[in-house]
């Protein structure tokens, strides 16, 4: 467990309906970071998050939240936006927010005041008196997000937060998450959207069938899965008949030359060789696979996952 971690999960196991949905999972989350929690459907993400929230108890292993076992004591410090979302259909939005705020430890008046302020900031000032049934889907999602952050939590757990969001609301949510991170909030975010995970997350935890497949900083994981390909644009680059010593293959498309490095060679070696050959390099980029591609490879059993497990 990292010192100062807000959440520390150690060798946790959980069996539901005869199936082991979480099998010895360990990870931690630090203040001011967004941990991307990735995995195929049924991988055990939601169950793990529910265990952190003390909605479900683990069969084995330990979970520490703010250094203690999960429980009521931390409810005021945790925000949660579940995947299955909803509001009371016949209750005004502000009343729902006030109630949920009081359950998170806020005084009723304070919860109401914050709810009205956040509704206004998110452009929902006029919707405060509308019931859940009267709100559009986008409004619903904003109100639910407000309910999760109303009490200014130190730990925010969001399960598939971008599901069903339009681009405008999706950007709004990303901005909120970045803002919370900047203020020191630890965020655990489950998502299927790899582009969002890559753009937002500091670290990634990929699980499959309750087991950890990948765990670490986004850059390190992408580096681990890099194929050793480098794309170069410039003038005077060596032709097909004269490969630089560190390159094994060369291909060219639309003016961009793509080199595949020999085993053991580094991109820096290739750059030096191109420079000494007299070529004028305008753009030199190491190619790293997108998280979506890494996700598929890791789940399929790519041995490179071992380095970042």
């Amino acid at each position: 467990m990292e010192p100062g971690a807000i959440v520390a999960v150690d060798a946790v196991r959980k069996r539901l309906g005869g199936t082991e949905v979480v099998a010895g999972l360990s990870f931690d989350v630090a203040p001011g970071e967004i941990l991307g929690f990735l995995g195929p459907n049924g991988a055990g993400k939601t169950t793990t998050m529910r265990m952190i929230l003390d909605i479900v108890r683990p069969d084995a292993g330990t979970i520490r939240v703010f250094g203690q076992a999960p429980g009521i004591a931390h409810r005021a410090r945790i925000g949660y936006l579940p995947e299955e979302r909803g509001l009371y259909r016949d209750v005004p939005a502000i009343e729902t927010l006030t109630y949920l705020g009081t359950l998170r430890g806020l005084a009723s008046g304070e919860a109401r005041r914050r709810g009205l302020r956040l509704l206004g900031e998110m452009g929902l000032g006029d919707a405060a008196r509308k019931s859940g049934a009267q709100l559009s889907r986008g409004m619903h999602q904003k109100v639910q997000l407000i309910a999760a952050i109303l009490h200014e939590p130190e730990l925010l757990i969001v399960d598939e937060p971008f599901g069903g969001l339009d681009p405008v609301n999706s950007d709004l949510l990303k901005a909120v998450l970045r803002d919370l991170r900047a203020r020191g909030t630890a965020v655990i975010m489950s998502t299927h959207d790899m582009a969002d995970a890559q753009a937002l997350c500091d670290r990634i935890l990929l699980i499959d069938r309750g087991r950890r497949l990948l765990y670490g900083p986004v850059g390190a994981i992408r580096d681990a899965f890099a194929d050793g390909a480098v794309s170069v644009r410039g003038r005077g680059l060596p032709g097909p008949g004269s490969l630089p010593p560190s390159a094994a293959e060369r291909s060219e498309r639309d003016g961009t030359v793509r080199y595949l490095l020999r085993p053991g060679a580094r991109a820096a070696d290739l750059f030096r060789e191109l420079a000494t050959s007299g070529a004028e390099v305008e753009r030199f980029q190491e190619e790293a696979p997108e998280l979506g591609e890494i996700f598929v490879r890791a789940v399929a059993g790519d041995p490179r996952a071992e380095a970042v497990r």
Binding site: L53, D54, I55, G71, I72, R75, I78, Y80, P82, E84, R85, G86, L87, Y88, R89, T96, L100, L103, R104, G132, Q144, A147, A148
Partner: peptide
């Protein structure tokens, strides 16, 4: 309404 999960994250 699916509100229960939010409530359960606050109230055991």
């Amino acid at each position: 309404n699916r509100v229960v999960e939010i409530v359960l994250s606050s109230v055991p």
